[in-house]
Design a protein around this nucleic acid. Structure first.
Lengths: 334, 334
DNA sequence: TTGAAAGCGCTAACAA
DNA sequence: TTGTTAGCGCTTTCAA
C-alpha cells in the first residue's frame, strides 16, 4: 500500500511537502504540487485515515448507539428512519458513522463510553436508551459531545432532539374527546421510556381540558410491543365495556389493539375509535387505516446529526430541539 | 487521556510490559500484571484503537455499503432487516460496523474502494449495488475481502450470499398456474438488478413447465417502486383484459399493483390473483393480505457477515451461498 | 517554498 | 520476565 513516503521518494521531495501538497496548503510550489498529485494518482495512493486520526486526535467518525435494531423490532420502521436521517446529513460531511450495537453481549462487557473512547469517535448519537440504563449516567459523566434522541437530558456536552410528546399525546386524546368519546383508554409504552411519561401527561391534560376525570384503570402499559398491547387491550375491553376510544402510544401497539377489538367483535371505528402514535409505514395500510400522531422520524435523525456536527465543528453549545407532531386522520377513528 | 505511557510510569515498568500485561500475554509476572491492571482501572484507561490498528495494520472494522437507505426506500424493510442480521452477527465478534452511504455526493468523489482504503476496513459487505455501477468492477479489481449480497459475482476475495431467485420466482408463477390461471403477467424490478434477471428466468421456466408461451407484452419493469408498479399495472390490465394472475418481483410493487386493480374495480383474488416477493412486514397487513415468496432477509445479512468474518479470521475461501425461499399463502391469490 | 525532526499511542522483534 | 529500540503513516513545529 502506497504511503506518502513512497510518493516523496518518487517526487524527490520530503514527506512534509507531500503532506502539504496533498492537503491543499498554500505554501507549496504549484509545479511541485502538480507533480506530487500526479504521482499520488499514479501510485493509487489512499491516505491512511488511522495515522491521520492518531496524530490529529480526531477520527472524523460519529458513533451511533441504537437499541431496537433487533430482528423483532425492525417492523416498526422507527429506528431505520431515524438512521436514514442521520446518514443523509452525515453523507454531506466528512464524518462517517460507526454503529455500536447496544444489545450485544460485547456491550455488557464494554460500556458505551468505552466503545466510544476506544474508537476515538468525535461524538455520539444515542437513541432508544431506557431511563434506567446504567450507562446513561456514564455517558453524561463523560465529556463526549453527545446528542440524545428522545431523551430529554442535557448538559454542557449533551444536547437532545425530541418531539413534543406531551402535545402530541394531548392532540391524540383530544381528537377522540372532540368527537364525542366519553371513555377514552390508553395503552402506553413502558415505565422506563422517557416519552411514555410525557405522553401520559398529554393524555391526562386532554382529559382535564374536557372536564373528564383521569381513571387509573383505563391505562395499561403495552411495552411498545404489538403482542403485549393486544393482550392488554383484550383485558381492558373486557373489563370496561364502556370504552369507546383508545389511544395507543405507538402504531405497532395500535395494530395489536385493533386485532384485540376485532377478536371481540367490536367495530372500528363505529363502536371503538383507535388512534396510534408515530405514523409508521404500516399505519396507512392496515384496515381500517390507522389515525395517528405523526412524528418526523427522519427529521429527528437529521437534526440530531446536524446539531452534533455543529457542536464538533463550530463548537456551538448543545441545544434542546423539539419537533412538532401532526394529527393524521384516517379510518380508525370517527 | 490516559495512555500506556502513563500507566508504565505509575507502575515503574516499560510500556512494553504494560502492553503485554493488558493484552493478556503469558510472559508477564502475575503480580506485575495485577498491578498494571489496577493502575489502568484507576486511571480509567482506554486503549487507543487507532494506534493499535495503525501498527497492526488491521482496523477490526467492516465497511457496509448499502444503497436503499434513503428516506423513501425505508418502507420496504428489506435493507434494515439485512443490516439487523449483519449487526447481530458482528456484535458477537470484535468487529464494528462502519456505514458508508452510497447515495451521497461524497461517494461521487470518492469511490467505494477509496472510502474503504482510507478507513482501512478489514472487509466489506455490499448490498443493493446495480449491475451497471461503475465502481463494482473497481471493488472486484481491488483486493478487499468482500461479500456481496444478491450480486452473484465472485473471485478469490469476493463471495456472495443470495437467495435462489430463479426458484423463488418459479414457485411464485407456478403457484398461480397451478391454480388454473391462464394469463399470468409479471411486474419485474429493473434491468440493472441482478435479481430481476433471475426472477424473470424463473417466471419463464414456470410458464414452460405448464406448457404456456412466454408473452413479452405481459412483462413490465416497475423499478421496485410502488408508484411505478401501480402505473405499469394499470396500463397492463387495461391492455390485456384476460390477465388473471400477476407476479410482482417485490411486495412493495405488489402493493402498488393491488391499488391499480382496485382502481379498475378488479376483485382480488376473485378476478385477479396477485403474488409478491420478499415478504416484507407490510405484506401481512394489507388487505387482502399478500401471498408472497418469503426470503430470509435477516439471514442474508447474518450469513454474509459470518462468511466475511470467517474469511478474515480463518482465511477461508469466499463462498457462494444461496438461501432458499418459501411460499407464503395469504389472501391475494386463489 | 522546502526539509529535518519529533511525536501521536501502540506493538513487536530482539536482547538482556 | 522485562526493557530497548524501531517503526506503523501521518502532521506539525521549527529552522533554513
Amino acid at each position: 500500500m502506497t504511503t506518502i513516503k513512497h510518493i516523496a521518494q518518487q517526487a524527490g521531495v520530503s514527506v512534509t511537502t507531500v503532506s502539504r501538497a496533498l492537503n491543499g496548503y498554500s505554501d507549496v510550489n504549484v509545479k511541485t504540487r502538480e507533480k506530487i498529485k500526479n504521482i499520488a494518482k499514479e501510485l493509487n495512493y489512499s491516505p491512511n485515515s488511522l495515522a491521520r486520526s492518531l496524530v490529529k486526535n480526531q477520527s472524523e467518525t460519529i458513533g451511533l448507539l441504537v437499541s431496537g435494531f433487533t430482528k423483532e423490532s425492525v417492523k416498526d420502521g422507527f429506528t431505520v428512519e431515524v438512521m436514514s436521517g442521520i446518514n443523509n446529513f452525515l453523507s454531506e460531511t466528512e464524518y462517517d458513522l460507526i454503529l455500536f450495537n447496544t444489545d450485544s453481549s460485547k456491550q455488557r462487557k464494554k460500556t458505551y463510553t468505552q466503545l466510544c473512547k476506544e474508537r476515538r469517535v468525535d461524538g455520539v448519537i444515542l437513541q432508544g436508551i431506557k431511563r434506567d440504563d446504567p450507562y446513561l449516567q456514564e455517558v453524561l459523566d463523560s465529556d463526549f459531545p453527545c446528542v440524545f434522541i428522545d431523551i430529554p437530558v442535557s448538559s454542557d456536552h449533551v444536547g437532545y432532539v425530541s418531539t413534543n410528546n406531551m402535545e402530541g399525546a394531548k392532540k391524540a386524546a383530544a381528537h377522540l374527546l372532540e368527537n364525542g368519546h366519553k371513555e377514552v383508554a390508553m395503552i402506553n409504552g413502558h415505565e422506563q421510556a422517557f416519552v411514555s411519561r410525557e405522553r401520559l401527561e398529554g393524555y391526562k391534560s386532554a382529559l382535564k381540558e374536557f372536564g373528564l376525570p383521569f381513571k387509573e384503570q383505563l391505562v395499561e402499559d403495552g411495552g411498545f410491543m404489538e403482542e403485549e398491547a393486544y393482550q392488554k387491550t383484550l383485558s381492558l375491553l373486557r373489563k370496561n365495556k364502556s370504552i369507546d376510544g383508545l389511544f395507543c402510544a405507538s402504531d405497532l401497539m395500535a395494530i395489536g389493539a385493533m386485532r384485540a377489538a376485532k377478536e371481540l367483535n367490536i367495530k372500528i371505528p363505529e363502536e371503538l375509535s383507535i388512534i396510534g402514535y408515530d405514523d409508521i409505514p404500516l399505519a396507512k395500510y392496515v384496515s381500517p387505516s390507522l389515525t395517528t400522531i405523526s412524528q418526523d422520524k427522519y427529521e429527528l435523525g437529521f437534526q440530531s446529526a446536524r446539531m452534533l456536527v455543529s457542536m464538533l465543528r463550530e463548537k456551538t453549545a448543545p441545544e434542546q430541539s423539539i419537533l412538532e407532531t401532526k394529527l393524521i386522520k384516517r379510518e380508525s377513528t370517527k
